[in-house]
Structures are given as C-alpha cells and as structure tokens.
Write a protein that binds this DNA or RNA. Sequence first.
DNA 1: TTGAAAGCGCTACCAG
DNA 2: CTGGTAGCGCTTTCAA
Lengths: 337, 337
Amino acid sequence: MATIKDVARIAGVSVATVSRVANNDPKVSDKTKTKVSKVMGDLGYTPNANARALVKQKSMIMGVVIPQLTDPFFASLANGVEEVARSENMQLLLSTGLFDAESERKAIALLIEQQCDIMVVHSKILSDEELTALAARKPGLVLIDRYIDAIKERCIWIDNFEGGRIAARHLISLAHQDFAVISSVHEIDDPKLRMEGFRSELNTAGFSLSEQLIELNEPNLRGGEIAAQNLLSSGKKFTAIFVYNDAMAIGAISTLEDNGFSVPNDISVLGFDDVLLSRYSRPKLSTLNYPIEEMATHAARLALRLNNKKQPQNINLDTYKYVPRLVKRESTSRFGH
Amino acid sequence: MATIKDVARIAGVSVATVSRVANNDPKVSDKTKTKVSKVMGDLGYTPNANARALVKQKSMIMGVVIPQLTDPFFASLANGVEEVARSENMQLLLSTGLFDAESERKAIALLIEQQCDIMVVHSKILSDEELTALAARKPGLVLIDRYIDAIKERCIWIDNFEGGRIAARHLISLAHQDFAVISSVHEIDDPKLRMEGFRSELNTAGFSLSEQLIELNEPNLRGGEIAAQNLLSSGKKFTAIFVYNDAMAIGAISTLEDNGFSVPNDISVLGFDDVLLSRYSRPKLSTLNYPIEEMATHAARLALRLNNKKQPQNINLDTYKYVPRLVKRESTSRFGH
DNA sequence: TTGAAAGCGCTACCAG
DNA sequence: CTGGTAGCGCTTTCAA
C-alpha cells in the first residue's frame, strides 16, 4: 500500500503538503493540489485511518452492541445506528454480545480498544453498576432499551409496563375474559415489566391471570410454537394471548392453526415489536409498535452530542422514554365475533 | 485514557515490558507480570488497537459490505461473517452499499481505509473490471453471490440458472401449465439468470412463458404485492408463480388472498432464499434454499486463507459454487388438487 | 503557500 | 528477563 511518504516523494513535495491535499486544506495552491492529486490517483493511495485516528485522538468509528444480527428487531436497531453513522461519514463497528455477560463485556471492551468513542449499547445482562461505571469512562456511550436511574440522561428506553397495560386494555375492550401470556424465559426486566403491566391492568378491570396460563420460552419463532403447544396441553380455557414478541406470536399462531384453532376467531393473539414481518403474516398480526429504529437513531445522535461534551442544554428526559403504540390488524378480534 | 506509558511509569518498568505483559509474552517473570497487571487494572488500561494495527501492519478487523441490514437475507450473510470474525477474535466492520454504485464503491474504500484486509463483499453493481482490480489490490477480498471468471478463485456464488430450472421442474411436476414470474426490477444478473433457467426448462418440457405474465418490481414485500396485483389485472390465466425471493412471494400471497385466491389451491407460489420467515408464513412457503449463512462463513474463511498468502494447495472450485435446494412446504401443490 | 519535525501509542529489535 | 529506541502513517504546530 502506498503511504503518504510515497506520494510526497513522487510528487516532489513534503508529506505535510500531501496531508493538506488529502484533507482539503484550502491553503494549498491549485497547482500543487492538482499535481499531488494525480500522484495519489496513480499510486492508488488510501489514507491509513489507523494512523489518522492515532494522531487525531479520535476515530471515525461508531460502535453498536447487540445480542445478535439475525433477529430482525436487532437488525433494525443496528440499521438505525448505521444511518446516523453514514450521515456523519462514520463507519459502523458491530459487536454481538449473544446473551451472556462475558461476551457482552468483551464486545464492549473490543469496541473501546478500537477507539470508537460513540457507542450504542444494548445490554440486558450486565449490572446497573457495571454499565454506570462504563458510562462514566466513555462519555459517548448510550444505552438503548434499558433504563438506569443513575444515568438516565444516557438511556433511550421503552415503557414496557405501560406496554403491558395497553395490551390488556385492548384485549379487555374486545370482551375477552380468559387470558394467557407467552413470555420470554430470559432473566431480564422486559418480560417481567410487560407481564406486570398486563396483570395490573387486568386486575384493575376485575380479571385475573392464571399462573397456569403463563408460558415462558425462548423469544423466537420456535419458542412461540412450543409455548402455544404447552398452553393447549394445559387444557385450561383462554381466548386471548398476549405474546412477548412478534416472532413468538407468529410461532404461536402457527401451532394454534396446526391444531385446528382459528386466529382470531377462536383465539386472539397480540404480539409486541411490530417488526415488518408482522404486517405480512397470516393473519396480519395485531401488535404493539416498538419504534426501535427511531430509538436507535435517537440514541446514536445523543451519543454524538454527549461525546462532543456539549451537554445538551435543556434536555427533556421525557423524550428519552418511548411508549409502545397499539397496531390493530387481524390477529385480535372481539370475543365470540 | 491511560496509555502504555502511564502503566510503565506507575509500575516502574519500561513500556516494552508492559507491552509484553499485554501480549502475554512468556518471557516475563511472574512477579513483574503480576505487578504490571495490577497497575493495568487500577488504571483501567485498554490497549489502543489503532496504534497496534499501525505498527503491526495488520488490523483485527474483518469487513463486510452488504446492500442493507434490514433485509434478513443480508443480515444472515453478515451473521455468517460475524461468526468467523468472532472465532478469530476479530471485529466486524460493516458497510452498507445500498443499491447504488457510488455508495458501494465508498463502502469498500472506507473498509480499506480502516486497514481491514479481510473483506467479504456483496456487490451486484460494480463492474467485473472494477471488482477484479480491487481484488488484485486486496488479497483478502472475497466476493459473495457473484461469479467473475477472471477471479473465480475469489468468488463464492450460487447457480441461479440452475435454481430457475429446479423451480420449473418442480412446478411442472405438479402438473401446472400456465406459469407466471415475479422478478426483481434490479439490473443485476440474478433475476435474469433465474428467469432464463426457468424459461429454459419450461421450453424443454414444451411449455412457454408469456411475456405478459412476467412482472418486475422491487425485491421486497411491497414489490411482491404490487407485482401480484398487476398479474391479476392482466386477466391472463396462470396457476403457478415463480417468485424472485421469499419477501416478494409473501407479499404476493398476501395480495392473492386479499383478492379471494387461495394459495396453493388456486395458485401455487414458489419463493427463493428460504429465509426463516418462510417457514412461518401462512401457508408455509415452498421455496429454494439459498444457504447464504453457510456461504458467508465459507467466504470469510476463504478470505482469511487468501490473505495469509497461503494459496490453498488443491482448491476445488466446485465447492465455491452452491446450488439451491428445493424446500417443499405448503404454498405449492398439484394443479387441480 | 510550503516544509521540517515532533509525536500519537504501540511493537519488535537489539543490547545487556 | 528487562530496557532503550526506532519507526508504523499521519496531523499539526512553527518557521520560512
């Protein structure tokens, strides 16, 4: 690879001048600029971003940590960050944390090693303390989908409890009385909060949620299938299911229909997330919209601002909290038609 | 951020020693190692990957270029590369090329600037010449989903023509006689090759494909909906559709059913790709499996090998070509039951 | 408008 | 086993 020195030597100028040309410094004569540019082209010169980052003490890399890429929800998250990176002429460094603490910790550490000072982190596993300490060290780190009170000005999150309540209200308004829940087996707050919100609203309306009609499983299509199967096997009656996410909901519908139940005629199914796929499943999935891409964009921009030390003057923390929005499609309907 | 010098000063050793400890060099006394490690911990020292890459003339970054992240097909591709990166203790730098030449060119250039010498590139837009020139400069660059004869030992690709033939054979074997095609409007080889293969096999069997029953649109759910609508509007008869990809196929099914046609009873629909979602759509989608994640893993490993100058001794180019595999589910059935 | 040179943080070579 | 130091490719003063 040709370096700045090669260009300088061949063009008969100093490296300083080449650097100026490479960076579009206005105080270079047109003549020199033309000459140097030509040599750059001939040699196929590409500036070394590592060297540049080293001397400038800042890299043009934006980092994002997500559990996995194949989940469309997280792909959307990454995509939101990528859009901001692109608009800032930055590059996207992506680390996956799987779902265990050690990988997640390592994913973040690797990002830091790469000197990326803007990072959007999705972590459900690491403790509040650990994340808070990390945030203290990296001003440009923002958490997404997580709320930690000590660093609330660094958190872009969604109100899961309220989501559960909205779900309950919807199902109740449809005259259902026997509810089931399919949730995630993962030991994180989201499923718990959603379920609490759901139960809370149910109780308020005078209904209750039977423990036997709560099924936990992996938050993916397969998990939804299994959970629905278990629900069916329980023999208990239910006419509406609130499901942890769209993937599980679609898996559940698949099992339900394979077993001769019609959705929503026999059983209503309500998802969560509103991934693109939910619009195209059959029946089209009623769900709660989780504006993850918008949130990711927000988080990335916030990280950018925070890193510039420009503490936002009048931050309105309310805007950091998102509330899921009911999207009524076809998988939920009035009980008994 | 604490640097190696800070650690050296506080630990009372030279930077050389700190470097050795950081790199697990065996010839450091346990005593020194313990002492230095402690200081590293106290200071929260993190090695600077940029500086390291600069002096070692190699980065621990693996790059991948895809059009976009939100398409599950490309997410799987990226995921395959990511798995290899992880297993090699490397980081994943992801650039999206959208679908235009300039962005794609820039995406690759940025990866090169970041000194990532292992790259898996999905490019449908750039010319054979441009890509060949790029490959000549970067020994660790591998193309995926593209075949260029001049650099065939750097291409991991799928036989689209054969895919089209397999599709035709399947539909013919189901006694269909009136075929439609929904394909991508993009000016790339894949849709053309698939259609050629499809048509070729049709002709061989004595059938023909009417130009009026070929609909091109954007290769996504929405595009599939519109294309199916147009097919319906044409008034021409067809009982089987070969669709460019699963997303379009699901969009098409959506439109078909909204218009009162049952899939597969009235019309059979065959997709392409076999993304996870195809297993969970209603009806479950018959499709051609495109082992993209496996191919991506293969590509990443190949890039790794090539970059190590270790020209694979006995490369079997046949293994670089993948053939789609028919996955029969529910969206295709025998004509007239 | 241009050049010389210091130095970013690190590794690797050479001495000791 | 440890230290001194050159130098990776680049930017950025400071001088000219």
